[in-house]
Design a protein around this nucleic acid. Structure first.
Lengths: 186, 186
DNA sequence: GTCCTCCATGTGATCTTATAACGTTTCAAA
DNA sequence: TTTGAAACGTTATAAGATCACATGGAGGAC
């Protein structure tokens, strides 16, 4: 994750997660966006909720509720499951975080404030998760829904595969065929 | 589910699940398709596996592993979790069943034999689930994947909403405004 | 046929994920 | 300052999933 790619996509359509340029700003920006959002919507952005969001923002991957709970305990917050689940529920309800169903884990929203149908790309090698926009109602699923009369309220779109970084690693390892020039991967 | 709709869509693209015309045939056809598939692929379609698929085929909704396990016990099979999970794993690996991630539950595949990227429509009122085809790589998700260099290997596409049957019920209840003419829903 | 191996099954234990229930605290509006 | 809703802390337990190890049966090698 020592990227330096000059590529810069439009903020709205940019898939966020793989290769972020300035990770510190992810956390700071994410927290202030959340703060603003809660203030303008009359929501209480309490210490636990803030801390959980901060924990999520610190990684571009999904964290299980019990991992979050451990970190909360380390920070002096309550250490029982409902503490984490309630905060996560708040964040998810208000569009500040998402649940990755495939992993039973949670990730900070990369586009807070925008009304969106998120889609996720999950790397099965390094566990990183990137968020993109989806438009499931416009594709085959939408057609099927219209054909049957099903009313879509919410969609889960998650792709599992290999992220560009791991893909490069795998490719160079295959080339080197055994000699380990590239960095190790957990 | 007292359908009589004459609508008949192409077998391949037809979303299966809501309003099936002949439910007995779902089970029979599903089992024989599975049998044929296993025979031709050298897979062992053992009694437990067959029974689990039969249990799944009996409903157009997703069943939790422990519900399946209960039914297995009733039929004289082993009653420990691995019994159900192993059979489910076999069915999922071989395309005879799918896991609905959103529900942590399982459903029989409606298009066995076809190589497909399934999409599901989940009714939040009656829990019925219909399977349709998706083409996630052709939409916004595919574009995002190509843009970032992510290699999609598998996709989860699940829509949550209201099925046509429940939609009708809700509409007529709203019209009747309190008087209960339509059938009750558990 | 006998042995042997692989795969499937049975079972107990354990781990992970998630929620119910209930009392206490906080906060802001009346 | 009262009061009511929302948030929090904690205990207990439900629900989902896997580990580890012993047993059993089908099919190939000999």
């Amino acid at each position: 994750m020592t990227s330096g790619s000059p590529m810069k996509l439009d903020a709205v359509t940019k898939p966020v997660g793989f290769a972020c340029d300035d990770h510190a700003s992810c956390v700071v920006d994410g927290l202030s966006a959340a703060e603003a959002r809660c203030a303008s919507n009359g929501l209480r952005f309490t210490p636990v909720r803030r801390k959980v969001l901060e924990i999520l923002l610190q990684e571009h991957r999904a964290l299980g509720a019990y991992v979050i709970l451990d970190r909360l305990r380390d920070e002096g917050f309550g250490s029982q499951p409902p503490v984490a689940y309630r905060a996560l529920d708040f964040l998810v309800r208000n569009g500040l975080a998402h649940k990755i169903e495939r992993l039973n884990a949670f990730i900070a929203c990369a586009h807070p404030g925008e009304n969106h149908a998120p889609a996720f790309m999950i790397c099965r090698l390094c566990d990183s998760v990137a968020e993109a926009q989806s438009a499931p109602a416009q594709g085959a699923l939408g057609a099927a829904a219209r054909a049957t009369g099903f009313k879509i309220e919410r969609t889960v779109v998650e792709a599992e595969g290999v992220c560009p970084s791991c893909s490069d690693t795998a490719a160079s390892e295959a080339t080197d065929s055994g000699s380990a020039t590239s960095e190790a991967r957990g």
